[in-house]
Amino acid sequence: MKKELKIILAEDDEGHASLIKRNLKRAGLMNEIIHFKDGQETLDFLFQGKKDKDEIKNVASLLLLDIKMPRVDGIDVLRKVKQDEFLKKMPVVMITTTDDPREIDKCHELGCSNYITKPIDYDKFVAAIRQLGLFLLIVEVPDLNNMI
């Protein structure tokens, strides 16, 4: 994994965000995590003006998306990211409390890279995030800078 990889976390529940951050760190990921509290904030950041887009271009990014968020939900963000010429190669991992098989199918159809349900059982939760961490440690995140 490239050193510069930034993790963009869209999660409206601050507790969940904190638990995800803690466990990613414990799994050995020391990357910077940028946290947004809803889909709109996330989209604003990803689709900001052309000038600032360089900021995203310069670092490889990975998106962790919660599905249920106020205003714009995770599925909308996923759809917009995958429709964008520039952002569509960014890996997107859905992390959500929903384990509805059809919701999962929908995310896969829209092109998410991975789907993790947040189990209430914290041991399982930790294991899931740890696995995500391991996945992130070995995954090749495309350098968005070279894509234009």
């Binding site: 969940h16 638990l19 249920k68 209430i120 930790v126």
Partner: peptide, 17 residues
């Protein structure tokens, strides 16, 4: 039911923490 599960993740998670 979905919204009620969300706080449980925190209760359970931070209890373990």
């Amino acid at each position: 039911t979905h919204d009620l599960r969300s706080p449980l993740v925190n209760i359970q998670g931070f209890t373990k923490e």
